[in-house]
Amino acid sequence: MAGFDKVVSSYEEAMAGLEDDMTVIAGGFGLCGIPENLIREIQRKGTKGLTVVSNNCGVDDFGLGILLPDRQIKKIIASYVGENAEFERQMMNGELEVELTPQGTLAEKMRAGGAGIPAFFTATGYGTPVAEGKEAREFDGRHYILEPAIKGDFALVKAWKADRYGNLVFRKTARNFNPMAATAGKITVVEVEEIVEPGELDPDHIHTPGIYVNRLILGTFEKRIEQRTVRCDSE
């Protein structure tokens, strides 16, 4: 690596420095746009005691779910965790700490974390269990609660295309939480399907500028589908 070249050649190198008890932010919604190989590298390393911030926690054998059997996750901050049997078992037994966070609040926490904003007021969750222990304030007759931002020791991101400088382009709804995650890591690691030379991406079409990216790796992806729904093509 030299200058702005962010490319690393192995997943081991991509995840170097991840230690027990760190906070890891991961992009993805369901199994769509998840950094599947970076997650597998955490499983291989055997890092434990992690606080994971992600909208969901994968399924039993794919995505973040694979970190559950060896109890690598201590705490998860997520909005929806209903797709995973081992997760439910660990949560019910109190082996796994779960902080359910509204999806929009979670996205904004990451965005704020990356943007140097320590906390923000939102109406979301006012008067619900989410508001417990949080400061509430009224603005123009409406009630809001104060939500702290989130930052990660690592942020794991899946993008479609990148140039070697780490400028990123996402594809369709695989974008989801990835751009916010990218901004909120002390070390942001991105895996992509294609890496091109700087200058080949149209600057107007870059979704995430390379300034947020520390390491970039080319991967191959299974891209599993959670709910395969089709229509009969009658035309």
């Binding site: 997520a78 509204p102 999806q103 939102t122 109406a123 979301t124 989410v130």
Partner: peptide, 14 residues
């Protein structure tokens, strides 16, 4: 049933 609120809290608040 503790699966999470997903986007529902944001939707009803907004």
């Amino acid at each position: 049933l503790i699966k999470g609120m997903g986007g529902a809290m944001d939707l009803v608040a907004g």
